[in-house]
Design a binder for these strands. Structure first.
Lengths: 203, 203, 203, 203
DNA sequence: CATGAATGAGGGTTCATTCAT
DNA sequence: TATGAATGAACCCTCATTCAT
């Protein structure tokens, strides 16, 4: 996969875009024929590029992670206190939620190297933000990066029977309440977390 | 469905139990043969009792709603302030989360009468709890029953690649933060909700 | 498979007959759809009865062995000296050669119990005939049962590009020369055989 | 095919070698991709050199015939009586049997000119050997060149489930008995042959 | 009523063949 | 000329559904 011929590269992009849409609309079990049709390529091309469903899911997942990490970087670059950063991250994520396939913690995709690399970058950045938040008294101390990843995955998960706007509104409201819940005032400690770092993947 | 023969009734229960388990393990698209096998009945029997997938999903959904409503009633009966009631409801729900198929707002199941009846009962009870919460200054004013239903559905959704305990821990932590976010102090207003009552269903 | 329903049994026979024909016409890689069509059953029925190609090949093989054993028994029952018995066996086999799927020595089917049982019966019967032949000076001493099985398999193998009569004539002529070669007069010893009993299967 | 560029010629040889191996290992229906891969050329190159499967089979067949003819010539050159010649021919053939794709009588390849030319040369040479054999009383009179070609094809056919040595041993033993059967002493006449010259081809 | 056999539509996958690079 | 990407027909197999026992 070092360098792909120009047309092959274009096809790869079209397939990934189609898969992302259809995964969200109908789940990751969607028919390969349909993905190929929407991408405008032959079924054989899809199989040449992605020999099995797992590899397609993997690559869509990687893209989701990359978007998430980009949102995080952008939010931090925009400045503001730690809470403002978190709000901005989630605003961006919810905004794109139906172009995103946000991995949940755990699953086979975890074994992929690129996925792990992205995961680590995200965990590190979030840990930093949370650390700042704690230092400035804006964020409760018992919340960790995996809680935030879980929350992001939850509000990104498809709600197949709702119109896009309704789903987005519900996700935004849920997010707002959750973020408000991150503030320390009067908080009782959270239940223990186990070791969430053992898992990270798509739904 | 007025009165079923004793053995027929037993079969119905076995099928529903098997479906509930398999829906959670592998999704609602699971093969009917497998449901029949796990239930220990013939495939013909399954079809006699549930002529199509929709009707099976519907009945499992109804059971989920009934559990939710029961949890709600039990929590209210246990007494305590409104916030204590909500905490107790969610504690019960998370506890049973992998025996529950919790419907999200919206979807075809909405057209069923029994489902609507349960939905209304749940909405009414939640509205009452929230009303009390507002009156006592424990709960922010801009949260409605559908936000809570959404939250409950979210934390109940399957996380197929995680061991039960890990999923339950994540759900409990998420719930705790969310509930803490329901308190009014320092809250900024939520984004608008549209009309969520137009939808109610399973994932 | 203890007792099959009457119609299921009939279908099984039709499938086996179709498979036998098509295996001979086009090889064991023939399309399952075609087998089902020729048998006059649905593809699903074929799969229910024979979950994979191996099991279908196995059962056709068993039938081939059974025919071979039957030919052997009939020939021995018909009486005559050992050489007359062998001639009669091969005459019968060549006669039915295009209804037969004659296993060659070696292959995965060997692991099947029924196949091994038939193999042993055939080997024993042939060993007896050869023993008699040796005793009466009609058959050379260095030929064993596996040589005869090999010869039978060879003359039964399909010759796809020849009309049935031409194939049968060539097989009959080859057989006649081979059997003539079994007589001891002037024979030089055969090359060593290794351990042929380690193998037995279809082509 | 007048004169091929040096590298093109090399490619042609590599493809033929790969095809010969794979035909024997997995049959003539083997995937073209696999042949190209084993030959170390692109699939396009394979198609440029052999526009269809038939032409590839034809050329492998021609090579088989050429080897057979060479074995025949070498055996005759080695001298000895007619029977010694036949024994030497078959010894050589069996020895190389798993590098040989030996055509059976009949089939589409027959229409190729080079194939017919080789066939005629082989038939003529065998006829001569048999004629000598008859004259010297070493070979029965009712055997013709096509019987020998059939025998050679039979003992060369792949036995996919047997290790090379086992297959070779069985073939050598079968050949020895068959050749012994060619001697006239006490022979009963063979069944009639039809007109075998109407057919000649690969399995 | 319960059972499980039969059916065939549809989705998964391979591979022969063409064609752009 | 060599390459390998793209294509789609054809085969494999599962499974929802019907129906005979």
């Amino acid at each position: 996969m070092t360098t792909l011929r120009a047309d092959a590269r274009r096809n790869r992009e079209k397939i990934l875009a189609a898969a992302r849409e259809l995964f969200r609309e109908r789940g990751t079990a969607v028919a390969f024929d349909d993905i190929a049709r929407r991408a405008g390529v032959g079924i054989g091309t899809l199989y040449r590029r992605f020999p099995d469903r797992e590899s397609l899911i993997r690559d869509v997942t990687v893209e989701g992670f990359e978007s998430g990490l980009a949102a995080l970087d952008a939010a931090r670059a925009a400045g503001g206190g730690p809470m403002a950063v978190l709000e901005e991250v989630f605003r961006r994520i919810v905004e794109q939620r139906d172009h995103l396939v946000m991995p949940l913690i755990g699953g086979p995709v975890l074994h992929d190297e690129r996925v792990q690399e992205l995961q680590r970058a995200i965990v590190d950045a979030l840990a930093q933000v949370l650390e700042d938040g704690r230092a400035q008294g804006e964020v409760r101390a018992d919340v960790g990066p995996f809680d935030l990843i879980t929350a992001a995955a939850m509000v990104c998960r498809p709600m197949p029977h709702l119109p896009k706007e309704a789903a987005q509104a519900l996700a935004a409201r849920h997010t707002a309440v959750y973020l408000h819940g991150l503030r320390p005032a009067g908080a009782r400690p959270l239940p223990p977390a186990g070791d969430p770092s053992a898992h990270l993947a798509m739904d």
